[in-house]
Design a protein around this nucleic acid. Structure first.
Lengths: 168, 168
DNA sequence: AAGATGAATTCAAAAAATAAAGCCAGGTAT
DNA sequence: ATACCTGGCTTTATTTTTTGAATTCATCTT
């Protein structure tokens, strides 16, 4: 098997990294999931500079992951609030997986910052691999299978410079 | 609730982003999960420059996520192979979540590059939220609860410059 | 000895992130 | 009106990181 020949142009991981494959985007999404919604809250809480925050919010918004609500109640200064769209809420699993990994493997000394719970029963929930028939599968029993269709001769991943040039 | 006061110093997501919160690390881990193990394979397949690849591999290795095996069979040039350690395999959920998000929400035109299957039955496997009693919970029924202990008055997230300075 | 290979490191140039300042609109205080 | 906050940016100068290409260096093949 020659790994050079695998074409990852249409890899889901690659597509996801294009949107949130950097520190700040991930922290911004984390905070949006926690309920933060205002520019200034996100700014001070993530620690990102205003320039970066503005840029990342625009990228997320352009991708349809964010909803912007322009709030202007009478007697209050108007401001924008940012919320994850239905599409953007799909990111919860990624952030959840990162939180789980952080707590499970990186031995943090404190209790989790957030907990994921079932809205109905209040029980804690975790991410797990589940089969089509609903049965859970232990992590070590999950095998990763590369799709043979993905092989294309003489494929080479484009450098990030090259990838940015193409007109999408 | 004043979000400024939430101390994320010990956030699992933050800890995880410190290790793999960038495009190249994520793609490298994706490739390691697919079975790539050699420097050159990873290089051409991810598209990362050699300098970046070397740097990222060292970070992952130092964090105990990677195992390096120095292979030197007689009659062959010796080389190093990189594998995810037990700890590093925990990253599979993060990459899996990203792949799932990529395919579910980013409407990729092609079939998935990889498929996750149950080793025993061969059934396809997805990530899902699961309660303590084993029941699956629909994504929209998962609520995120911020730990009250995380609140600490006048907390402000350190800038990335500040975070790097501290001697860990 | 010459050449190839694996895993880097080094270097100049390009790109991105940073902190700080500036801008602009809407609302508030005088 | 005038002056001044505040939210959401944008701009600017400076620092840091990434890039691509070249180089190193040890091992192995011919």
């Amino acid at each position: 098997m020659d790994w050079k020949d695998i074409d990852t142009t249409h890899c889901g991981v690659l597509a996801a990294t294009d949107l949130i494959g950097d520190r700040w985007s991930l922290l911004i999404v984390r905070d949006l999931l926690m309920g933060l919604s205002k520019f200034n809250d996100l700014q001070t809480h993530t620690g990102a500079s205003t320039a970066i925050l503005a840029k990342r919010l625009r990228v997320l918004s352009d991708a349809g992951l964010l909803e912007e609500r322009h709030c202007k109640q009478p007697g209050q200064r108007g401001h924008t609030e940012y919320f994850l769209s239905r599409k953007g809420l799909g990111l919860a699993q990624i952030i959840g997986a990162m939180a789980q990994f952080g707590y499970d493997e990186l031995t943090l000394p404190q209790r989790p910052l957030v907990e994921y719970r079932d809205a109905e029963t209040g029980q804690r929930v975790r991410l797990a691999a589940v089969r089509e028939d609903g049965q859970q599968v232990a992590p070590e029993d999950v095998v990763i299978e590369v799709n043979p269709d993905a092989f294309s001769p003489k494929y080479r991943a484009p450098s990030s410079r090259e990838r940015k040039k193409q007109p999408t």
